[in-house]
């Protein structure tokens, strides 16, 4: 799993490290495949991803090209469904019931469940081996805080992976004020300082 909505709130330095190391045969779970020359989009462009579970691929022509060539498998998921599947994975649930996707190709092969006269799709929980996420600030307890619209998928991905690596703009010497903590430190395994927030790619 990689956090971020396009480039906003992306762990760009850690992504650069994957590129340098040519870590490949990865399954990417993310909101989008961004642009070919930006954040997680670069992993696609470099051919390191075998499968992408994402909501949007329109900004990265490489994704479509590799998908049509058959070298990249793409599972497109409605954005709200992706968020809830990850939440379910992190919350110890087997899945969620949603009306989103009924009557569309998204329902193909999925169980429909009737609850009190309303039909829902069963969407299964998603978990990952590793979550690479971003936070604006962290303290030595792993507590995380966020600025602006950088939270997006980062906060929910923090709960749903066996190993959670957080790239931060700033490592606070003092504990974060309890009222400002968005992600409690118990979810976090490793902290990495962003190399240069201004020039992180």
């Amino acid at each position: 799993m990689i956090g971020g909505f396009l480039k906003c709130g992306s762990p760009t330095s850690v992504i650069s490290y994957l590129l340098k190391n040519k870590t490949n045969h990865l399954t990417l779970i993310a909101n989008d495949t961004s642009f070919a020359d930006s954040d997680k989009g670069r992993l696609i462009a470099a051919g390191l991803i075998d499968k992408a579970v994402v909501t949007h691929i329109g900004m990265n022509p490489e994704t479509g090209k590799q998908m049509h060539a058959g070298t990249l498998k793409v599972e497109l998921v409605p954005q709200g469904t992706l968020a809830e599947r990850i939440r379910a994975g992190g919350a110890g649930l087997g899945g969620i019931l949603t009306p989103t996707g009924l009557g569309t190709v998204v329902e193909k092969g999925k169980e429909k469940i009737n609850v009190d006269g309303k039909t829902y799709l069963l969407e299964k929980a998603l978990k990952a081996d590793v979550a690479l996420i971003y936070a604006s600030k962290a303290d030595k307890y792993g507590n995380l805080s966020y600025k602006g619209t950088t939270r997006n998928f980062n906060t929910v991905m923090a709960t749903a992976a066996a190993c959670v690596i957080v790239e931060v703009d700033e490592l606070s010497e003092t504990p974060l004020p309890p009222n400002e903590i968005i992600v409690p430190g118990l979810f976090v395994h490793y902290l990495v300082l962003k190399k240069d927030p201004q020039n992180a790619e």
Partner: peptide
């Protein structure tokens, strides 16, 4: 670090707020 869903830089009006993807949905 303040964008809309199209990735465009935006401002926030008085009383506005930020949240994560599952709160949004």
């Amino acid at each position: 670090q303040i964008t809309n869903a199209g990735g465009k830089l935006i401002s926030l009006i008085e009383g506005g707020c930020y949240f994560d993807s599952f709160s949004s949905f």
